[in-house]
Amino acid sequence: MSHDGHHSIVIPAPGPEFVPHTVAHHFDSPVQEFQSMKLGFWLFLATEILLFGGLFAAYFYFHEAFPETFRVGGAQLDWRLGAVNTTVLLVSSWTMAMGVRCAQTSQKQKTLMFCALTLVGAVAFMVIKFFEYKAKNDHGLVVFSELFSGYNEATGQLAWFKDYDGVMANVPHGHMFFAIYLTMTAIHGLHVVIGAGLIIWIMKGTAKGRFHAGYYLPVDLVGLYWHLVDLIWIFLFPLLYLVP
């Protein structure tokens, strides 16, 4: 779209390895652009909080309804893996914060390095998650191959909840804990994957020199997203692994 007589505002690049940033046509100043984007992103993060909030509400509701189920169910999870994953995410959150800081100060190589470290954290998290899911699968607590096979009304058996060891035999609705565990961690895992994708996108832009002290908005926003992923895990970890 052409805009006759419109002077685009250009933020100069701090050095030859960077490219300048052009402020979008409908903004009067870089400040306005930055603040608008940032407010928009905070609003988006607020919707994410409420989206997960529904799941947390369901968790508390059934924790209250079937405390025994949650106690026994929580004991089946390996808190060591959970703690390792928490550490991984916290460290990656730190590397991300450092990455944003380096972008703010136009340190291209260091930004790339910290983003890469964050990415390593994301991959490590997912790998650990995979082994955790596999363990659940082996004990028949969440049988992934049977996940969509439904519920047998006649026998009252749930296809994906076999419970080979009978650990949940003495509590009401033993599948409930694992259903909530699976749903919460899967949606959180999806966010981790999306976050990893965004970090890769940021790294590409950084390599091209698009982000620098004058314009680091995308790095900042992806950083916020990644911290949100961390934030949710901070609550998920004690709720699923420790408290029950």
């Binding site: 603040q35 940032k38 407010l39 905070w42 609003l43 993060l45 607020a46 919707t47 909080i49 409420l50 909030g53 529904g54 947390f56 509400a57 959150s93 730190w94 991300m96 914060a97 950083g223 916020l224 911290h227 949100l228 961390d230 934030l231 901070i234």
Partner: peptide, 29 residues
Amino acid sequence: VIAIFMHMKWDTAINKIVFLSSFLFLSLL
């Protein structure tokens, strides 16, 4: 995490209100 890593401590008032109000409304649910 919110205050330091997410820079909320140094953010504008409106951004603080927006993000923290999500917790407020969540608490209603």
